[in-house]
Simulated assay, not measured.
Amino acid sequence: MNNYMHVIEFCGFSKSYKDFNLNDLNFKINSGFITGLIGPNGAGKTTLINAIMNLIPPDKGEVIVFNKSMGAWEREIKQRIGFVYDEDFYYNHLSIKEMGKIIASFYSNWNHAVFKQYLTDFKLPERKKIGNLSKGMKIKFSLAAALAHEPDLLIMDEPTSGLDPVFRRRVLSILSDYIQDGNRSVLFSTHISTDLERIADYIVYISNGQLIFSGSKEELLDEYFILKGPVASQPMKKHLIGLQQSPLGFEGLISKNIYSENSFDSQVVVEKPTLDDILVYTQGDC
């Protein structure tokens, strides 16, 4: 096992832009697990990942990775990180093989056999030009390149958005296998919350640059109930975090601390929420 409990730590991290701020973020990402990063579009997920990769400097605070300051130990730390972004930054005129050689030159522990095996598994022909790859194929290539130097931390920013459901499930299986030795960690940012339902151990939830929740997935899901019932039995709106109504009835999210069986009539159905339910209702758009 690693000799550190937390693979990433945000310590008083703040970054201000003209129309967006990350405000005094303090949280930790546990080592040896898959952590899902969730939040609505524009919440700051990609900005947070860019901060981890030291692509944006903090105005205050710092990011600690592998118990070292990313600002002071960037080169050493990045040798141990693999990353997959939704957008590619490759040379479209090069072949997969040629691009692979360029990426390999940046990593001292690049494993060509592992890279080639993933290309075979993902059905990516080495001679094919990067510019001729579909979005899904580019993500497959990015994943192969990220795993080829056998990193201790894999960071993925919306990696499954361009993949078909079958390969998305395959990626989730790869990630689950990847952390089995307890020495590797994954930070997985996605708006496809069903993916995180399947594999995430922990969740970091941010909105408008603010930390809403950081803890185990089960803790987050256990904080709320979904209530459903006919319109006639609709509870007072003040009890609900969100509310959807139709002529047939209502559905809403309620904090487990507020809910009481005696508060609502017998026609109300109580269900456990999904991550998607929590995201939708806590944004206040219902």
Score class of each variant (00 low, 15 high):
residue 217 K to E: 05
residue 220 L to K: 00
residue 13 F to C: 07
residue 90 Y to K: 00
residue 217 K to Q: 06
residue 216 S to I: 08
residue 127 R to T: 14
residue 63 V to Q: 04
residue 257 N to G: 09
residue 82 G to H: 03
residue 214 S to Q: 02
residue 268 V to S: 06
residue 5 M to E: 15
residue 127 R to H: 12
residue 269 V to T: 12
residue 235 P to H: 09
residue 165 P to V: 08
residue 6 H to S: 12
residue 86 D to W: 00
residue 188 F to E: 09
residue 273 P to Y: 07
residue 236 M to R: 13
residue 152 D to T: 01
residue 246 S to K: 10
residue 149 H to K: 06
residue 125 P to R: 12
residue 216 S to T: 15
residue 205 Y to I: 03
residue 98 E to W: 07
residue 222 D to L: 00
residue 30 N to T: 13
residue 164 D to M: 05
residue 102 I to W: 11
residue 225 F to C: 00
residue 244 Q to C: 02
residue 196 L to A: 05
residue 8 I to K: 02
residue 258 I to L: 12
residue 15 K to S: 08
residue 139 I to Q: 15
residue 203 I to M: 02
residue 12 G to T: 13
residue 173 S to N: 14
residue 1 M to N: 06
residue 32 G to Y: 02
residue 132 N to W: 10
residue 278 I to Q: 03
residue 41 N to M: 09
residue 110 W to F: 11
residue 282 T to M: 10
residue 240 L to V: 13
residue 40 P to W: 04
residue 231 V to A: 07
residue 153 L to W: 06
residue 58 P to L: 04
residue 169 R to H: 12
residue 86 D to T: 14
residue 131 G to S: 06
residue 54 N to K: 05
residue 136 G to C: 08
residue 16 S to M: 07
residue 189 S to F: 04
residue 222 D to K: 09
residue 84 V to F: 13
residue 101 K to W: 10
residue 176 S to L: 09
residue 90 Y to L: 14
residue 61 G to C: 03
residue 80 R to N: 14
residue 159 P to F: 05
residue 185 S to C: 10
residue 281 Y to H: 15
residue 190 T to H: 11
residue 33 F to A: 00
residue 180 Q to C: 07
residue 208 N to K: 15
residue 167 F to S: 11
residue 83 F to S: 15
residue 154 L to T: 11
residue 109 N to W: 01
residue 134 S to D: 06
residue 47 T to Y: 12
residue 74 E to F: 09
residue 42 G to S: 06
residue 168 R to H: 04
residue 4 Y to L: 12
residue 180 Q to Y: 08
residue 11 C to M: 10
residue 66 F to P: 01
residue 30 N to P: 01
residue 172 L to C: 11
residue 284 G to F: 08
residue 198 R to T: 07
